[in-house]
Amino acid sequence: MVLTFISLICLALGPEKDACGQSVITVPYAKPIPNPLPDYALTSTWAALPEVADAADRVPLRSDFEDQQASARADVFFIYPTTYVQSPDGRFPWNASLADSALNLATDESTILNQASVFNGSCRVYAPRYRQAHFYAFLTPNNDDKVQALNFAYADVRTAFEYYLQHYNQGRPIVIAAHSQGTLHAVRLMKEFFDNKPLGDQLVVAYLIGMPVQPDEFRTIPPGGAPGQTRCFVSWRTFAKNYYPDWYQKEVNTAVCTNPLSWKTDDAYVSQKENLGGVGLKYTYYPQLADAQCHEGLLWISKPYIKGRAFISNKNWHNADINLFWANVRQNVQTRIDAFISKEKQ
């Protein structure tokens, strides 16, 4: 079990040659050619769709959760994090190809299974495949390379969302959910489609996880400070208690930290007894997995409460941001949807 949780961190490390086998990109940014535009009319360009059997339909082992998409009253548009850390041909283009079947499988068996599935209890799950930026985009000293790679990726997310609105949504309440690179794209999407826009009336909540989001990021969408608040956003980044990552700077410690055990933004400690359960890499359910406390823009946890926890030395729990609090997130989605629909009926 210790190794299971340690392995969650591997994809969160940088793509230099390391224990995770990731790689540096040594050439300047260039648009991937050939790399055909995604056609979102094809089910193959979606990692998750309600009417297609996929990893987002599953529920954890050793749990009594059920996939409720058939009766769900809301949709979630989920933007997955970076899974592109290598290249099948060794040349490491800046953006992934949707024809990379190995990458698609890795995405499905990691983030779609462990993260997107949290929403299947109360939402129809939509998760587009997109030509994500390579992880090195977050490490390169050349900001132009980073911007171009992320812009290229966001264009796909935007196109997929427009297709979703035109062909799938039909006026239903919308949850936006994302992690890491996905959160960068989700913030842009929120500003373009929801913030001070008519579509904002359909927004239940946005889960913007794994990247710093400032309290004033949006003009009309505030941070959420209560479990049943709607038309708001929540955000957190998980690290070991008393740990500050190397990049941490005091001038950006104003980032929103939502405690996923209380759904408040204060610095109150919440014990693992309030944790309804999380999931390990093998998608096994573990109750009371972690405690949580917000501290200067970071979410701090003690070592997960599992057998052998004394041997855990991880400091960065980025890749387990959702895993550690899986059942609490699942419950909160339902709570906010219920509150949203109740207000709509008034």
Rank of each mutant, 00 (worst) to 15 (best):
I221N: 04
N169H: 09
Q166G: 08
I176H: 05
V204E: 08
K197E: 00
Q202C: 05
G224A: 13
Q166I: 02
Y154W: 02
Q166L: 06
G228M: 05
L189W: 04
A226F: 07
F152I: 09
R231A: 12
P223L: 01
D201S: 12
R219S: 03
P222R: 13
D195A: 07
Y164F: 05
A206R: 11
Q202Y: 09
I221A: 04
V147K: 11
A149I: 00
Q181T: 08
T230P: 07
L184G: 13
P141T: 01
E217P: 05
G228V: 06
Y154D: 08
L150Q: 02
Q170G: 12
R158K: 14
Y207K: 15
V204A: 08
D145L: 12
Y168L: 06
F152N: 15
L139M: 14
P198Y: 02
A177K: 15
A155G: 05
V205M: 14
F218M: 11
P222T: 02
K191N: 13
L165S: 05
N169P: 10
A186R: 15
F193S: 06
P198M: 14
G224M: 07
Q202L: 12
P222K: 14
L199F: 14
F152L: 10
V204F: 13
F193H: 08
R172N: 09
G200D: 00
A178E: 00
N142Q: 10
C232I: 03
F193L: 07
T230Y: 02
G210C: 01
K146C: 03
T159C: 13
K197S: 05
V175P: 00
R219T: 13
Y168R: 12
Q166Y: 00
L139K: 08
P227I: 02
R231E: 00
R188K: 15
P198N: 01
R158Y: 07
E192D: 12
C232Q: 13
F152E: 01
A160M: 01
P215D: 12
N151E: 09
A206V: 01
